[in-house]
């Protein structure tokens, strides 16, 4: 019983063990830098998007820590051009060697991503095409939490069944 209890209780840790899986969406070597752009979630969806930029020296692969980075997304629809831009900073990044920004992408479709980097008097730019998907409906994002309800109901029903079964199986003491 205690082995069972131990393993069951420690299962509560399962939810802790998650990792992050940033995807590389652009990479370019320009001048003395190599610029890589990562998206926290793949595919990128309309709405809030976490993008981060790594700037490295070509010579020794060391990260450039004092750059100014601007992330820009543009989308041309006919003659109209929509642009979303935000400065990327270390403060907004979990990995402090990266520069991160949170951009609100207004619509899905084909966007042009550019990361403008200025460091040590040198300017560089990395660009890429970004296919932005429609925003995920809330139910798609949060369904695991809602699914806890039927799971808990199942566990409760199972618990009741086990208890009834145990009562049925336990021989009653004779008077």
């Amino acid at each position: 019983m205690r082995i069972a209890a131990g393993l069951l209780i420690v299962i509560s840790c399962a939810c802790l063990l998650s990792g992050d899986g940033g995807s590389l969406v652009a990479r370019k070597q320009t001048g003395p830098f190599v610029i890589s752009v990562f998206a926290a979630d793949a595919p990128v969806r309309a709405g809030k998007a976490d993008l981060s930029v790594m700037v490295q020296q070509v010579s020794d692969e060391s990260p450039v820590m004092d750059a100014t980075v601007m992330l820009r997304l543009t989308k041309a629809t006919g003659s109209a051009v929509t642009e979303v831009a935000a400065p990327a900073t270390h403060a907004k990044a979990t990995n402090k060697t990266l520069y991160a920004a949170q951009l609100t992408i207004p619509s899905e479709g084909a966007w042009r991503l550019s990361a403008d980097v200025a460091a040590n008097g040198t300017n560089a730019e990395a660009t890429a095409d970004l296919n932005v998907m429609p925003p995920a409906p809330p139910a798609e994002r949060y369904w695991p939490y809602i699914a806890l309800i039927p799971f808990a109901v199942f566990l409760f029903a199972f618990n009741r069944w086990l208890r009834r079964r145990r009562q049925f199986l336990t021989p009653r003491a004779r008077p």
Binding site: M1, R2, I3, G6, L8, I9, R163, R166
Partner: peptide, 27 residues
């Protein structure tokens, strides 16, 4: 960790909630 974790939880929860599972022979 088994006993301390069980003793750290509310007694009624361990008895009523976890008990039937912990004593279920197949598990």
């Amino acid at each position: 960790p088994v006993l301390p974790l069980l003793k750290g939880l509310p007694k009624s929860f361990v008895k009523e909630g976890l008990g039937p599972f912990l004593t279920w022979r197949p598990l």
